[in-house]
Amino acid sequence: MITLKINGLETNVEKGTTLLEAARFLGFPVPTLCHMDGLHPFGACRLCLVEIGEGPRIKLVSSCTYPAEEGLHVRTASRRVMRARKMIIELLLASSPQSKTIQDLASAFDVKQQRFRQEFEDCILCGRCVHMCEEQMMAKAIGFRGRGENRSIGTPFDVQSEECRLCGGCMYVCPVCMLRCTYTEPEKAICGGCANLSVPCIEKEQFDDVMCYMEPCVACEITKD
């Protein structure tokens, strides 16, 4: 057993428990995006930052990947944590403003402005879909490609993957696609999953290879009638 203090509260956890699990066990809310129970922690979104250490050795770590250590002092909502978290949300907002999840996060954390160059990405590269596909579906059909600003999620060579089981798991776990999937008016609902795999049918023209278990496209079917 490991004894550590979270926000001043002492607790015992099993070896190997992450700070996120420990904090949530005690009931402290820590927002997350890329973390998902049942998938390996990836630490991509940095939203779950917490502060650890004392004095000059204070630092911010991602709680979803940081294992509990004996005698650690963890603060989940210090001023520095809140400032960093707001900044991350602001950055997410700059890349994917149309995501309902991110809009909700922004309003929950009182982020009222967005000072960066606005982009309209569909994907925040959190990697959930990739890990879902690999760890739960054992398919390894999609993955990260390229790097830096060209990093994207998709299939090799951008063609429909032979490994894909058409299970829809990737779309199901995507944390940012919600608004696109259900839209504000349910009758106009489209799943948008394909858009999150950057093969968008809507708003952009090209629509060759759909990575969608709904093929043929439901949205197109709906608009046809």
């Binding site: 390894k140 990260f144 490609r145 090799p156 060579f157 490994e163």
Partner: peptide, 18 residues
Amino acid sequence: RSLVEIYGVATFYKYFSL
């Protein structure tokens, strides 16, 4: 390994060309 893994490596490094 999965094709997507190899493809990921091949697209990560600028040295490689597809």
